[in-house]
Each structure stands twice: as structure tokens, then as C-alpha cells.
């Protein structure tokens, strides 16, 4: 089915068509002007300015002039002018436009490509990049209101997460070069020393973490982190890792990750496949 909507009036963000909540639409859609979708849409969309409302769910590739995403899109988005993903927005697909704004809190699972209006590739930017005129400044780290100097505890927690990623990469058989081995050993030594501080470990634990059959979770976490450091040093130094040791390493990663609410799957580490 192909639907075509014609623009009736001109004006920014003035709605020309509206698919309300509860409407389920399947087919290809071409429109002019501004269209807002708050229902479910499956098919291909081409046209002017598209607004995906908070309740909107789109399963399709989108090719429009501008798009603002407050809801969910599963498909690739290409815009001639601008893509704006609101803090509530979720996009599972690749996005491409000359101007891209991804609000803090938004979800993007896919690549993000900014292309100059001359169709010359300008830059490939990750989440959180903010367009500033013609320049693009990648911004990462704390939100504006949370900016402060880093404490030793901040660094130690970041090191524990890095150690988890180092171990996860090893279990994926990612290559270990000379410098990587030394870096793993160095990080493991820092973590093993730092995690002896029990109050610090207590701060890491998420409130909803599972208890450990009567044992103090802080104590268990500290010992598991120290064990993880030992395991990491072991494989970095070339000690043999049989099937059961690999399983134990995997299990330890999962426990620590769960306790501190850190998922290794949330970190894109594919670039580590080459050393």
C-alpha cells in the first residue's frame, strides 16, 4: 500500500497530518509538509518534516527533510537537513544528516554520520556529539551540573570497569599485543590495591543488587574484584586458561558487573578486535 499526503499549509512544525495513538499503519508513505506519528507505523516513509511522538513507534527506513524523535524508530534515518533525537527518543538504526542533535538521555543504537550539505562526507560522530555551527565538538563525560574534579574513587571505579572490558575482550579472543598485556597488568595492579579499601567498594554497590546468602556483599565484591585482577594478570602474563578458568572468569565478570550495575554489552569494544 502506498499513501501520499499533500501539504495544505506552510509553516514550521505546523501539522499537516497526524497519526494518533492507537492507529496501526502498514505500507509506504510519502508526504509533504509536517507529519506527526503517535501510533504504530511499518513501511517506508519519505517526505518533509516528520515528528515521531512520544507514543510513536516506527519500524521502517525514513528519508525526510527533518525529523524529531520523541518516540521509537527501528530503521535507518536519513534527513536532508536535521535529525533531532529527544531525551525520550530511541533509535535502533543508522542516522545520517548534515545536522544531528542527540539530547542527553536519548538512545541510539547504530552509527551516526554527519554529512555536509554538499554531500561531501564531513565527519562520523558518536553519540553525544553536539553540532556547533559548522564545527563538531564531541562532548563526553559528566553533565554540566555534575562537573567536578575527579576523585581517586572515580578513577578506581573506572579502572574496575576497564578491567571488566579487558577480560571480556580476552574471552572474545581479541588480540593481545605487547602494550596491551602491560596495560592489563598495570590496571590489574591498581585495581587490586585500590579495592582493598572497603568503604569505597560499598559505594559502588547498587541498592537493588542481589544479596549473597547472608554474606556481606561489600566483602564479597571486594574479594571478587581482587580475584578478577588476579585472573587478568594471569592471562596477560600468558598463564594457561582452560575451559573452566574461562568460565570462572566469565562468571566473575557477570557478578561484578551486576553488583556495580555495569554491563559489558553496553560498551562498544569492537575496535579492539585489531591490535
Amino acid at each position: 500500500m502506498i499513501w501520499s499526503l499533500r501539504k495544505r499549509t506552510r509553516g514550521k512544525r505546523e501539522l499537516d497530518a497526524f497519526f494518533g495513538k492507537g492507529i496501526h499503519f502498514e505500507g509506504d508513505l510519502t508526504f509533504e509538509g509536517t507529519l506527526r506519528i503517535d501510533g504504530f507505523f511499518e513501511g517506508e516513509i519519505e517526505g518533509g518534516t516528520l515528528i515521531v511522538g512520544v507514543d510513536g513507534v516506527i519500524h521502517s527506513d525514513i528519508s525526510v527533510s527533518d525529523v524529531v524523535v520523541y518516540g521509537e524508530v527501528r530503521g535507518n534515518i536519513r534527513a536532508d537537513k536535521r535529525i533531532d533525537i529527544d531525551a525520550l527518543g530511541k533509535v535502533y538504526g543508522n542516522i545520517e544528516a548534515p545536522s544531528i542533535v542527540i539530547q542527553d538521555g536519548a538512545l541510539l543504537e547504530g552509527t551516526c554520520r554527519m554529512e555536509a550539505e554538499s554531500n561531501t562526507l564531513a565527519a562520523v560522530i558518536p553519540i553525544d556529539a553536539v553540532s556547533q555551527g559548522e564545527e563538531t565538538l564531541l562532548r563526553r563525560g559528566a553533565d554540566l551540573q555534575d562537573m567536578r574534579e575527579m576523585t581517586e574513587q572515580d578513577v578506581l571505579l573506572a579502572r574496575v570497569k576497564l578491567l571488566i572490558i579487558m577480560c571480556a575482550a580476552y574471552l572474545k579472543d581479541y588480540p593481545l599485543g605487547e602494550y596491551r598485556r602491560d596495560a592489563i597488568i598495570e590496571n590489574a595492579n591498581h585495581v587490586a590495591t585500590g579495592s582493598e579499601d572497603v568503604p569505597v567498594c560499598r559505594e559502588w554497590i547498587q541498592e537493588d543488587s542481589n544479596s549473597t546468602d547472608g554474606m556481606d556483599l561489600t566483602y564479597v565484591l571486594r574479594e571478587r574484584v581482587r580475584l578478577l585482577a588476579l585472573m587478568a594478570k594471569g592471562f596477560a602474563e600468558g598463564n594457561p586458561m582452560g575451559q573452566f578458568r574461562r568460565q570462572a572468569l566469565e562468571e566473575n565478570i557477570d557478578f561484578i558487573g551486576g553488583a556495580i550495575n555495569f554491563s559489558k554489552q553496553a560498551v562498544d569494544m569492537r575496535f579492539l578486535r585489531v591490535a
Binding site: 563526553r140 563525560g141 575527579m150 576523585t151 573506572a158
Partner: peptide, 12 residues
């Protein structure tokens, strides 16, 4: 080209 707002983490 980029700004790292402290405190930042390993993913940053």
C-alpha cells in the same frame, strides 16, 4: 575537537 567533562569514565 572533543571535550571530556570531569568526572568521566572509561566508556567516554
Amino acid at each position: 575537537d572533543a571535550f571530556l567533562a570531569k568526572p568521566f569514565g572509561m566508556d567516554d
